[in-house]
Design a binder for these strands. Structure first.
Length: 941
RNA sequence: GCGGGUGUGGUGAAAUUGGUAGACACGCCAGACUUAGGAUCUGGUGCUUCGGCGUGGGGGUUCGAGUCCCUCCACCCGCACCA
């Protein structure tokens, strides 16, 4: 009987739909399991075979867990705000919602034909108002919270206002920017204000002033931040869109512009984001990326007094603060370097140096961040100013250079050329002194960064190992009052505003210049006449008049939108309670479903996503909205499926194409050819001529057997390389079950691997073969008990498949099933329902449609979906005889079948007795015999 | 430069704790059935000078190493002047 996959798959997909087979609800009587895929951005191109790889793996696992009795949550949705739909809208005027809807429909169709066990009733779309209503709500909560650094958690902003009213900010430990009060100009905050205020001060402030103070402490806050502004294009550009101060597209001038932006105080969570990584079951590479992004380093903040012209500490108390991880090298400081943007540059610069310094600062300002980072050449300018060395009292010249970044640490460094490679290069380039501070190490040719070096010329630290001197130096610096211990982070607060249309509007209105949260309605996107920013640089939403806004409050609405990561930072929670209109997710539901037990997605571009969703999860936990503070307990990153491109070779200047085997005979041009015109690297000549008009009269130089062999190469799948394989074609030809099994069979999930359509036939044959087994058994009236040999095969498979799935080895499961089927086929009968029913269950995570069919054939009742996962019976796994490989000095020479019950010494005796042993010894003595019971025997001669 | 990873037949790969390297497939070769099917079945298929040699190269530990240690090389990914 034919394997009619089309009929089978259509039938079961209909049945599942009709019976709501994949609908899940909370059920406290059963353990839960949450399997999540990284939801896709629905692009216009649809899915290619690479996309479903992770979805198939998670689907297999979800089904496996269901068989094991878990209540499995396995949802799917769309990250549907994004740039491509907006760009399309700018070009065509079509509303991005329409484009998005079309793309989603296409995705849904493609996903559904693959037979995934998603509970579609839980689908979410980040661009849907019923979803982004709650993204806005979370933003509102962030806006109405501050971070208590003592309690190490977020708290309501009302608590902070109450504390201020009660006792000023004396005992308040709130995360905020250093010098948060700078930029605020209230009567109470005079020139010498140090950031501390009293309850009386607070009470004397106006409403507006109080709000301005509170804004400095909110977790979601407004602040001035520098962006790349391109007036000609009327838009803000990302750093990588700017080259040499000009826009990459069009070559228009770009200027740095300070804009008021929404920010997220993720820095408050830096330490928790770092430490809780240890408990996550993620790959080291992903965790390392998180650690690097957070970039924690321990050291000291050291203050150098600014020197007056006569070399005395400036009486105004002006100081340059630097961050260093190597306070032990303090005696090696021979100069100081400030970032060109540093506040004190102007003040330190002497008149003689002013022109040169200003030119350098201006040039640095013109360069984009990216160019500055890409340029490794050494440049810098002496300011003419000096600071006083806190230990030696010596004058230290101050330079500016763009290798010092304004955005990291304090934007200033103490340069120790003997102990730092960059400082060393700078010193030798400008012929600055390189004081020797390491005993017996010549630092005239290179810096010494080894912490095992011994210090010298370093006062009381002489003779100490540098690494050991660090804590001493920290104590010393603190005792002297010229510095403090400090932990520095690389991570910056995240800019949360985008000047885009197709994103979440902020639930924020302005009243008297004060930003206020809108709580009485969902702010939906207004109608606009174009999706571009306005000419004076306002975001697209600023095009909307008051009446264009479905919800308008206050004097003005916030016109920025949220960045792409807003909606994806919490979507895993919405799946738990997708239609709740009163909460983002009911606490009882998030308590039940809890953390994601298995998160599957690509490792590319996930560092930010993971960081932000971890941040929001911790915040929601702090505020009591959920009961856990890490979203994804365990994560697998699937590898990319690469395309296999085919090439034809055109002889230069002709319309003649030469087969790959003969192309070396003349100069040729290599052209991508559509893989659909190639079978087994042989070109379909007629198809090629019909492919494009210019090839209609193509001539060919063929192989001697009359065929045209194409060249091939493994590359990323892309339309322009004509190597895209869609799942649709393959489902049509082989069925979803075959495609599912094949994608898993291809190789380890986490590895990148090339797609090879040829191999799919092997998996397809396997499914046909297994169906034949069942039909034959059914024709033999399906006995209830099978032969012992058959049961051995099945129980071996049960053990292997269960074990492999438990360690997420998805590829070897298919092999194990193939082996079982091959073995059963060669038994020629003896198959009954006690073998065939468990086998159908083993198959069902991979080939759910066929498994349903086989389950029914094998006399199973109901759907296979809820059949309990079979247990391997040890009685069928133990062998009574073991064929030992007998090796001599590690080389296997013959096999010896022995009873499995024999002890090691009995095995040894049997080996000694065997005639073949004597032959191998050839007169030599046996020094030792190693017996590994059940495994191997090694005779040492 | 730093961090992470990978390296095994013609190809995708397997080998879970150190115990017969190459399972399972693709491809290829030969044959059968048939005559044109994207069909099915059977057998073979790491290399070999038939002694052996083989998991990127070299060294080590071990009775025994793809697996552990040292070292070097190649490739891929991420970060990249982070003080």
């Amino acid at each position: 009987m034919e394997y009619d996959f089309r009929a089978i798959e259509a039938k079961w997909q209909r049945t599942w739909k009709d019976t709501d087979a994949y609908k899940v609800t909370e059920d406290t009587s059963r353990p839960k399991f949450y399997v999540l895929d990284m939801f896709p951005y629905p692009s216009g191109a649809g899915l290619h075979v690479g996309h479903p790889l992770g979805y198939i793996a998670s689907d297999v696992f979800a089904r496996y867990k269901r068989h094991q009795g878990y209540n499995v949550l396995h949802p799917m949705g769309y990250d549907s705000f994004g740039l491509p739909a907006e760009q399309y809208a700018i070009q065509t005027g079509q509303h991005p919602a329409i484009t998005t809807e079309q793309n989603i429909n296409r995705y849904r169709e493609q996903l559904e034909q693959l037979g995934f066990c998603y509970d579609w009733s839980r689908e979410v779309r980040t661009s849907d108002p019923s979803y982004y209503k709650w993204t806005q709500w979370i933003f509102g909560e962030l806006f109405e919270s501050w971070y208590d650094t003592q309690a190490q958690k977020a708290r309501p902003i009302a608590d902070l206002a109450a504390a201020f009213a009660d006792n000023g900010n004396y005992n308040v430990h709130a995360a905020c920017d250093e010098g948060w009060w700078q930029g605020l100009s209230f009567p109470h905050f005079g020139e010498h204000f140090d950031g501390t205020f009293t309850d009386t001060d607070w009470a004397s402030m106006s409403e507006t002033e109080q709000q301005e103070v509170l804004m400095c402490f909110r977790i979601a806050y407004l602040a001035d931040s520098e962006v790349n502004w391109c007036p000609a294009l009327g838009t803000v550009l990302a750093n990588d869109e700017v080259k040499d101060g000009l826009s990459e597209r069009g070559g228009h001038p770009v200027v740095k512009k300070t804009m008021r932006q929404w920010m997220m105080r993720i820095t408050a969570y830096a330490d928790r984001l770092l430490t809780s990584l240890d408990d996550l079951d993620w790959t080291d590479s992903v965790k390392e990326a998180q650690r690097h992004w957070i970039g924690r380093s321990e050291g000291a903040s050291v203050r150098f007094a600014v020197a007056t012209a006569d070399g005395q500490p400036d009486p105004s108390g002006a100081e340059v603060e630097v961050f260093t991880t190597r306070p032990d090298t303090l005696h090696g400081v021979s100069f100081m370097v400030l970032a060109p943007e540093h506040d004190l540059v102007a003040g330190l610069t002497t008149d003689a140096q002013r022109a040169e310094v200003e030119a350098y600062v201006e040039a640095a300002g013109m360069k984009s961040e990216r160019d500055r980072q890409g340029d490794k050449s050494i440049s810098g300018v002496f300011t003419g100013g000096h600071v006083v060395h806190p230990v030696t009292g010596a004058l230290v010249p101050v330079w500016i250079a763009d290798y010092v970044l304004a955005g990291y640490g304090t934007g200033a460094i103490m340069a120790v050329p003997a102990g730092d490679e960059r400082d060393w290069r700078f010193a030798s380039h400008f012929s600055l002194p390189i004081p020797a501070i390491f005993d017996g190490v010549d630092t005239t040719e290179a810096a010494c960064t080894d912490k095992n070096a011994t210090l010298c010329h370093s006062g009381e630290w002489d003779g100490m190992r540098a690494g050991d001197a660090i804590p001493r130096a920290l104590d010393w610096v603190e005792a002297q009052g010229c510095g403090t211990r400090k932990v520095n982070y690389r991570i910056r607060d995240a800019v949360f505003s985008r000047q885009r249309y197709w994103g979440e509007p902020f639930p924020i209105m302005y009243e008297g210049g004060i930003a206020k949260r809108i709580t009485d309605a969902t702010v939906t996107l207004p109608k606009v006449d174009a999706y571009l920013p306005t000419e004076d640089g306002e975001p697209p939403l600023a095009r909307a008049a008051r009446e264009d806004w479905p919800v308008f409050r206050g004097d003005a609405m916030e016109t920025n939108t949220m960045p792409g990561w807003a909606g994806s930072s919490w979507y895993f929670l919405r799946y738990m309670d997708p239609t709740n209109e009163n909460a983002f997710c009911d606490r009882s539901k998030s308590d039940y479903w809890g953390q994601v037990d298995l998160y599957v997605g690509g490792a590319e571009h996930t560092t930010g996503h993971l960081l932000y969703s971890r941040f929001w999860t911790k915040f929601l936990c702090d505020r009591g909205h959920i009961g856990f503070d890490e979203p994804f307990k365990f994560m697998i990153n699937q590898g990319m499926i690469l395309g296999r491109s085919n090439f034809v070779y055109r002889i230069q200047g002709t319309n003649t194409f030469v087969t790959a085997n003969k192309r070396k005979e003349q100069p040729t041009q290599r052209l991508h050819v559509d893989i659909n015109l190639v079978e087994n690297d042989k070109l379909n000549l007629d198809g090629f001529r019909a492919w494009r008009p210019e090839f209609a009269n193509a001539e060919f130089i063929l192989d001697d057997d009359g065929t045209y062999t194409c060249g091939h190469e493994v590359e990323k799948m892309s339309k322009s390389k004509y190597n895209v394989q869609t799942p649709d074609d393959l489902v049509e030809r082989y069925g979803a079950d075959t495609l599912r099994c094949y994608e898993m069979f291809l190789g380890p999930l986490t590895q990148h691997k090339p797609w090879d359509t040829q191999g799919i036939s092997g998996v397809h044959n396997f499914l046909r073969k297994i169906q034949r087994l069942y039909t034959q058994a059914a024709e033999a009236d399906l006995p209830s008990s099978s032969s012992e040999d058959a049961l051995r095969v099945v129980h071996k498979a049960i053990a292997k498949v269960s074990d492999d799935l438990d360690r997420h080895a998805f590829n070897t499961v298919v092999s194990a099933l193939m082996i079982a089927v091959n073995d059963l086929a060669s038994l020629q009968g003896g198959l009954g329902s006690d073998a065939l029913q468990p086998l159908a269950i083993l198959l069902s995570p991979y080939a759910p449609h066929l498994a349903e069919e086989l389950w029914a054939t094998a006399g199973g009742s109901g759907s296979v979906l809820d059949a309990s996962w079979p247990q391997a019976d040890d009685a069928f796994l133990v062998e009574d005889q073991i064929t030992y490989p007998i090796s001599f000095n590690g080389k296997v020479r013959f096999q010896l079948a022995l009873a499995a019950s024999l002890s090691a010494s009995e095995v040894e005796a049997a080996v000694r007795k065997d005639d073949r042993t004597d032959a191998q010894l050839a007169g030599k003595d046996i020094r030792k015999i190693i017996v590994v019971p059940g495994r191997i025997v090694n005779v040492v001669m």
